[in-house]
């Protein structure tokens, strides 16, 4: 009888292990640290920001893991993730191109920039290029209206831009991506 454990249908420890394996360490630590705090459920948006910061998007598995570990209904987690524009549910390319379509950029010709980008990349808004390097999205004002029209690539803001500068700009990022690739494979070789 020594190997008999208390009979229970609750498989939580097993589930918890599975869910914990789906999230990175810093997110787990963050969730654990908040669990005992008052109004811990209010940290949901901050948690989702961290998960997206790590994976680049929020997959269905991530949402479920967050819901289970934070003990918040999955319906609410999904509701929040879909309500806010900042959260992406699809994987995205290495560089996210955000075309600013705010007023200042719009009156200064952001539409032409947007068209040039779709032409150059061969993708529409919300899509990712086949090589997985660029994703194209639009945003409502990045707050650098004095430089309009602007495009934000990753964390970097570029402006004022003309359509003819777009190919060069993209070239630069392609070169950077290629360099990273070389660096990564060199590291693997070592």
């Amino acid at each position: 009888m020594s190997d008999c454990r208390p009979c229970t249908t609750d498989n939580w420890p097993e589930l918890e292990r599975g869910y914990r394996a789906m999230l990175p360490e810093d997110v787990l630590a963050f969730i654990d640290a908040n669990r005992t705090r008052e109004h811990s459920e209010s940290m949901l948006i901050a948690t989702l920001h961290m998960v997206q910061g790590h994976y680049g998007h929020l997959g269905p598995g991530h949402l479920e893991a967050v819901a289970q570990l934070m003990q918040v209904p999955l319906a609410k987690v999904t509701g929040v993730a879909t309500f806010y524009h900042y959260f992406r549910l699809q994987p995205r390319g290495k560089y996210l191109i955000n075309v600013c379509l705010g007023t200042a950029c719009y009156v200064k010709g952001a539409e032409k920039i947007a068209r040039k980008l779709t032409d150059e990349l061969g993708i529409r808004f919300g899509e990712t290029s086949k090589d997985g390097i660029f994703s194209l999205e639009s945003t409502r004002c990045v707050g650098t209206c004095g430089l309009a029209p602007v495009v934000m690539i990753g964390d970097e803001v570029h402006g004022p831009l003309t359509p003819s500068q777009i190919p060069n700009l993209l070239e630069g990022y392609l070169a950077r991506a290629a360099e990273d690739l070389v660096g990564e494979s060199a590291a693997e070789d070592r």
């Binding site: 379509l101 409502r140 004002c141 209206c145």
Partner: peptide
């Protein structure tokens, strides 16, 4: 939460 397009004084 400065969301108005065209305003950037808060930032």
């Amino acid at each position: 939460d400065e969301g108005d397009p065209g305003a950037f004084m808060d930032r």
